[in-house]
Each structure stands twice: as C-alpha cells, then as structure tokens.
Design a protein around this nucleic acid. Structure first.
Length: 310
DNA sequence: CTCCAGGGATGAT
DNA sequence: ATCATCCATGGA
C-alpha cells in the first residue's frame, strides 16, 4: 500500500475520508459551545480525538468527512441519533428560549468519555473557556499518547491511571492551580477502582449526582455537566455564572433575592425532560451574543510598540 | 493595571 | 439553610 505523503490540495476529493450523512448538525457550533475543549481547527475542519482514536472531521452542508474512527463511533460521539427536532419542540415557548433555539440550530450535546469529561470539568472551576482549553491541551501533551492523523499529531486524554502516577506538583505545572489537588485525588480514586465511572451509568439521576458530588472538586454544577455530557442525562441542568444571569434576567426580572435553590427548582420543572439541551442553548446564545465578547482585535497583528505608556 | 471566569470546600451566622 | 472567604491562574 502506498503511504500517503506530503500535502495535498485544500479541497481535494474525498480519498481517505469517510462520508457520513449528518442532517440537522452543526459541527463548528457544537465544538465551540463549551461542552468539549480539545478540538483544534485544521484546514476547514477540526482535529482531535474520539476516545483513544485520533480524528479529523470536516463538514460541508449536511455531510461529514471523517478520517480516523469508524462511522459508527463518529455517529455515536456526535449524537447524530438524537431526535433534535423533537428535543427542540419540547422546549418551553418563551422569547428567550425561542431566540436561543434559533441561534443554536444544529448544536448537539455529544457523548464524551466519562473520565475525560469528569477530569476536564474538575479543571473548569472558575476558569474561562479559553483557559480550560489550554489546560486540556497541557494535560494531553504532557501525559497523553501522541497519535497521528494525516500530517497532524493529536494527543489522547490521559487515563486516570496515568494521571494517578503523576503528582500534584506536575499537575500544577499545567496551570491547574488549586484544582491540581482535586484532579489528582479523583484520578487516584478512579485508577484504584474504588470508583468505577462506567458502572455508575446504570444509576438513577439522583444516585449518580450523589456519587459524583462525593468526588474531590465535584459539586452540583460540575456533576450536572458530567451527567449531561458524559452520561446522556439530558435533563441535567448545570447552572454556572452565565446561566444564572440568564435565568435571573429572563425569568426572574427585578427580583431581590433569587436563591440558587429557587433557580434549581425552577429550571428542573420549567425546561422539561431535555432541560440540559435547553440549558446548553441558552448558555451558548448568551455567551456568543454578549456585548462583552469578541473584540479581541481589529487588525491582524497588534502594535507592540508605538508611543506606549512608559 | 483591574476584573472575572461553565465553582468547591470550609467555617461562621 | 444562607453567607463569607479563600483558593491559582491567565485572558480580556
């Protein structure tokens, strides 16, 4: 077999690409919605891993072009089987929800590996998404396994066993800060078998949340993220600072004290059986349309020196 | 420079 | 039960 070498044309006919029909799916939007943090842009597509397999994924219209994992694994990872129209139709009918639903067309909640998702969200506390991505990259590059896809190298997320044999100090060198202690402790629990994340998949929502919250560095918010993004609990409704603002402004206008408990009770009953999807749409819409966003630069290169204050 | 981020754990009211 | 404080770090 001839090994493929060097670079090929930018838009070349699918040679090695597997073509997958993906209607009602927006790859870029899904990967940029703050649920997964390791996919990197690469010419007109994204490079990353699905579990332990390297992958390169591009989208043209309703077609997905994939190098790496099998079609079945790709369809499962990106949750192409979720009945998105049905899910969106189950959302409550109010202005904020309608706007978010229109904005987030094709955004799907994907099925992430349990440990990878849990570990990443332990690192997410009081961190901006840009920095979570940086932490994920550092952990992968230092402790993950390099894998080649086409002419790129991507890294798998390190197993709990691998992280358990590092040290809190080494983890801190990945800019984890105080989160290093929690990640290390949780990694040791998972690696020792004292906790088995796969077996937890058969627990009820309440039991699963309880178990997750026993882990160091996991509270209600992170537990709900892991339930939603790694355990297919589509009713789980994580409330972070963004969602808290949205809920207060859109559903509790000019109230003095809206307690977290009140917000939790409201979100659990109001948004229906797929509340997690509703939450993700509200989150992504709020984050992407916030006036405090995307004014990173006007030119292509900043001016390092020109009469600066000194 | 200041402000803030997909929070959690702990201890005091 | 709610509130206050601390925890590290870096992007905007």
């Amino acid at each position: 077999m001839p090994l493929l070498t060097s670079s090929r044309g930018l838009l070349d006919p699918p040679m090695k690409f597997t073509e997958i029909s993906a209607p009602d799916f927006d790859l870029a939007k899904t990967l940029d919605s703050g649920q997964v943090f390791h996919w990197e842009k690469c010419d007109a597509g994204f490079a990353g891993t699905i579990g332990t397999e390297p992958a390169c994924v591009k989208q043209r219209g309703n077609e997905l072009f994939v190098i790496g994992p099998s079609m079945q694994k790709v369809r499962r990872y990106f949750a192409l089987d979720h009945p998105l129209a049905e899910i969106c139709a189950s959302f409550p009918d109010d202005p904020a929800m309608r706007e978010a639903r229109d904005y987030c067309n094709g955004l799907r909640i994907i099925r992430q590996p349990r440990w990878e998702c849990l570990a990443t969200f332990i690192c997410s506390s009081m961190k901006q998404i840009a920095h979570i991505r940086q932490i994920s990259r550092a952990l992968r590059q230092r402790f993950g396994a390099p894998k080649k896809v086409v002419d790129l190298v991507v890294h798998t997320f390190p197993s709990s066993e691998r992280l358990a044999e590092t040290s809190e100090k080494e983890l801190r060198e990945c800019a984890l800060g105080y989160r290093a202690k929690n990640l290390f402790a949780t990694a040791r629990l998972a690696a020792s078998g004292e906790v088995n994340l796969e077996k937890w998949s058969k627990l009820s929502d309440v039991e699963l949340r309880e178990k997750l919250c026993e882990l160091p560095g996991v509270g209600g918010k992170v537990a709900n993220c892991v339930m939603l993004f790694a355990y297919e609990r589509l009713g789980a409704f994580p409330i972070d600072v963004w969602i808290e603002r949205v809920l207060k402004e859109e559903y509790f206008p000019r109230k003095r004290k809206v307690t977290p408990q009140r917000l939790r009770a409201f979100s659990a009953s109001y948004f229906g059986p797929h509340g997690g999807y509703a939450q993700q749409y509200l989150f992504h819409h709020a984050r992407k349309t916030s006036p405090r966003k995307q004014q990173h630069s006007s030119g292509k290169s900043g001016q390092p020196l020109s009469a600066g204050p000194n």
